[in-house]
């Protein structure tokens, strides 16, 4: 019987650490005892587990998260309680959901360009579009790249 053993982490931690210090240190490293028999053939095929964080966060230095409150974006599949993954390095483009800072609060809307004009569009008939004007104190804070939504309350 070959049993996989978890390698004690302590010895690994003394190696140089880089900028990701505040992140978790994952050591998905397993090996089999050789002396207990035939080495596991799967050892040659080890890969890291799927890292959802890496998939959702393409540019870690510019990516932030916020939680949604309200229902004005329901038809754009952005619901109350969802988590938004926001990338500040991306530019607002037509039809893209953005997080803006408007009238003293963060708000999520779809950015819409129509000729020279720009609009912040809700996705719920009960709410009105907002035209972006020069004198308005509006800033796009970042572009929504993912909406994390649970299908039912779990």
């Amino acid at each position: 019987m070959c049993s996989a053993k978890i390698v004690p982490i302590a010895s690994h931690l003394l190696e140089p650490l880089d900028f990701d210090l505040l992140g978790d240190i994952e050591i998905p490293f397993f090996y089999s005892y050789v002396e207990c028999g035939f080495p596991s053939p799967s050892d040659d095929y080890l890969e890291d587990r799927i890292d959802l964080g890496k998939y959702l966060v393409q540019n870690p230095t510019s990516t932030f998260m916020m939680r949604v409150k309200g229902s004005s974006m329901e038809e754009a599949n952005i619901h109350d309680g969802d988590i938004l993954v926001i990338d500040r390095s991306l530019k607002a483009a037509d039809g893209v959901p953005v997080v803006c800072f408007l009238n003293g609060e963060f708000t999520v809307k779809t950015f819409k360009k129509a000729g020279d004009k720009a609009f912040l569009m809700p996705a719920n008939p009960a709410f009105k579009p907002i035209e972006v004007t020069e004198e308005m104190d509006m800033r796009v804070w970042g572009v929504v790249v993912w909406v994390l939504h649970k299908p039912v309350k779990l």
Partner: peptide, 15 residues
């Protein structure tokens, strides 16, 4: 801790 704790991330309003 806006960037390190999921329970403390900023709220964005949809209203």
């Amino acid at each position: 801790s806006y960037t390190t704790r999921l329970s403390e991330i900023q709220t964005v309003y949809a209203r």
